[in-house]
Design a protein around this nucleic acid. Structure first.
Lengths: 201, 201
DNA sequence: GTCTATACCTCGATAGAC
DNA sequence: GTCTATCGAGGTATAGAC
């Protein structure tokens, strides 16, 4: 527990928690103030408005989410090794921060213009690098020919969706919490296997 | 355009549209009334409250979403044929109704208890049937051994996520609308291929 | 069934004392 | 920097005429 942060820090922690749970429209400034153990007026003293505070949280979430998503591609190893590492690391990250992609997803769905924020943050996705890596793997005979973007989308989908849609899936499939958690854990390996099996030449 | 529906029908159409775009908390009764071309008070005459109206829309969405999701498993053919049919039909459905899974996902994430609604609607997922089908395929030597639930989650993830997270992905990957739409179209085939390749014994 | 008018409330935001 | 008190906008919901 971080009791003795600065006031600004406590506000940000509280705002993160509430916005992640309820989204922008569903969150209440009073709730954030309560969670931070301070007064509503102080929120406006530190951050001018609810929108400004939210934008700060969303930026922070994106700033955490994207590097994690693409960092692996910068490392060592061939395409198969990178896929294995990516899947493991990414499922771990999403499982530990389940609300991060959820928040980004919902707010960008409601308000697509906010996607512009990504570019403003100076973030450049290593799309070309990823494409290239896949094509090199094909040429080296490591993997069968696939469309790089399809492959990337498939991998990300299988990593993120089961965590993102956890409540929905559990509700539909009638799976209890513990079982589901174990399944996510198992998937760190099984998803990588699933992809690698598919890529056999 | 359905101009001359009953008033109740016009309200439901409008509510669907607004709730899908903004979620429960973000939607405004005034907005729904405007879109339906009627007065705010009439909303409360037909449906007692905002919550009741929303519940109706959510139930309707789930009632549309789930049968589509599981209907294929009741049909003819072996596991590979069913997978191919499922992927094609499901991506088509989600692409035509992109907001349906989005609405369900967001509201069940915020309010997991609402998942109970699924059972109240008398819906039973054919989980056992799906499991059995996969295991039969393994025994027949059609596919390599896999954990059925993993396989099902993988398939659903690859079908739903790219549509669900469209704005996020386009924003991150800098892909324009037309290209993305074509990609979704292509995926009706490529995702099925990807799965079937992975399942080679 | 459909409208206008309005009651009642909650929320975001600000003023001003300390 | 932090609090209490309060304003004003805008929200859901209802009363009551037609």
């Amino acid at each position: 527990m971080e009791k003795d942060l600065t006031t600004e820090g406590r506000i940000l922690t509280a705002a993160r928690s509430i916005f992640q749970q309820k989204g922008l429209a569903g969150a209440r400034m009073q709730e954030i103030a309560d969670e931070a153990g301070i007064n509503k007026a102080l929120l406006h003293y530190y951050f001018r408005s609810k929108d400004k505070l939210f934008e700060r949280i969303l930026e922070e979430a994106i700033g955490k989410f994207l590097p994690e998503l693409f960092g692996v591609w910068e490392g060592e190893g061939n395409i198969l090794e990178k896929i294995e590492r990516f899947v493991h690391r990414y499922i771990s990250f999403v499982a530990e921060n389940p609300y991060v992609p959820s928040l980004i997803l919902h707010e960008l769905t409601i308000n697509p213009e906010k996607a512009g924020m990504i570019r403003k943050m100076g973030f450049k996705p290593p799309k070309d690098k990823m494409m290239m890596e896949v094509m090199l793997g094909v040429q080296a005979g490591l993997i069968r020919p696939v469309h790089p973007m399809d492959l990337i989308l498939n991998i990300i989908s299988m990593c993120v969706f089961p965590v993102l849609a956890r409540n929905m899936i559990q509700g539909v499939m009638l799976i209890d919490d513990l079982t589901y958690q174990e399944m996510i854990e198992t998937r760190k390996k099984s998803v990588a296997d699933f992809v690698i099996q598919s890529l056999r030449p």
